[in-house]
Design a protein around this nucleic acid. Sequence first.
DNA 1: GTCTATACTAAGATAGAC
DNA 2: GTCTATCTTAGTATAGAC
Lengths: 195, 195
Amino acid sequence: MARKSGSHSDITGPRIRAAAERLIARQGFAAVSMRQIAAEVGVQAGALYLYTPDKQTLLFDLMREHMEGVLAAWEAVDKPADPLGRLQAFTLFHIRYHLDRPDAVFISYMELRNLDPGNYEIIAGLRGAYEDALEDILRQGGETGDFRVPDVSLAAKAVIAMLNGVNTWYREGGRLSRDRVERIYWNMVRRAVGA
Amino acid sequence: MARKSGSHSDITGPRIRAAAERLIARQGFAAVSMRQIAAEVGVQAGALYLYTPDKQTLLFDLMREHMEGVLAAWEAVDKPADPLGRLQAFTLFHIRYHLDRPDAVFISYMELRNLDPGNYEIIAGLRGAYEDALEDILRQGGETGDFRVPDVSLAAKAVIAMLNGVNTWYREGGRLSRDRVERIYWNMVRRAVGA
DNA sequence: GTCTATACTAAGATAGAC
DNA sequence: GTCTATCTTAGTATAGAC
């Protein structure tokens, strides 16, 4: 495709999103200024408004893309038919996908309260859809007798909270390898649901 | 004690902290202005500086008081000698204490990144001390054979993350009573550590 | 102890030149 | 597509009156 000289729209857009993601994850949405994001990209603040109508939309787009990405990636996972296998697939998928995207995860988790009401509803809906995927597995396993979960909704919330915790402390090259962390957590998840 | 007419230092101070806690929990530290806190209390913004040297110290004091409160309260709990009883006591204590203070919990969890480095170290140390208390229980139970935890540090983090999750969704008067939630979570914790 | 007034800084967003 | 310059609003914090 031909490109006008001096035009960088195909590269600046993604760079703005990447810079915003990094900065918001570290400092929080309200504490990050548009000037700061612009400086990180190497443009002036005004130039950002060629790529987003306002700061709120920038945050919303980051969160929506992340949540849609999680859902699409889980859809694409090759899933065993039996509940235990599915739960293991979910556990390993969740840990890996989230450890690969710490900034996006952190934002989608911490900045919910900075979304406008309409945007909040949409993101909350996407989060609910992801939780539903886990609930379905737990319900299926309850019916087959593979799991013993007195309350499917609570168990799903507990498992996701436990797995999300990994992101708060795991550091590449630390005491434990990813594989080891995954095994230990899978062991705890399995036992927590009475498998 | 004699009090000057028009003096409200004994009441305004706590009211400022209460208002700051409420507002910061809902909107985030960076998004809350000193004017907003003052308006909530019914004074002018300048008057806040009679009670705190600056906004950062106000945040730090809220977090320090909360963390010290958690530690002191856990110290004061009547604890069984056996690991299983201790773990149950910890689980029920954690859920109850945290559900009673949702705003303080939320802040101590979400606003770590808004602390100045020196203040961060202090709060992180207090958090570590609380986690240590749980690690001690798990280690003891591992030695007696009551629990099967391949990694005490990971298990402690997993349990605390799971329990913290309750605060994100529990609402008084909702589908489940506190007692029922406590029982279900205790069941999951117990199984997760192989008891 | 609190208020009014304000100094100072920085924010989000826009207009118009290039 | 980007920059410079700027409008408008709002923030933290302080000074001095009462």
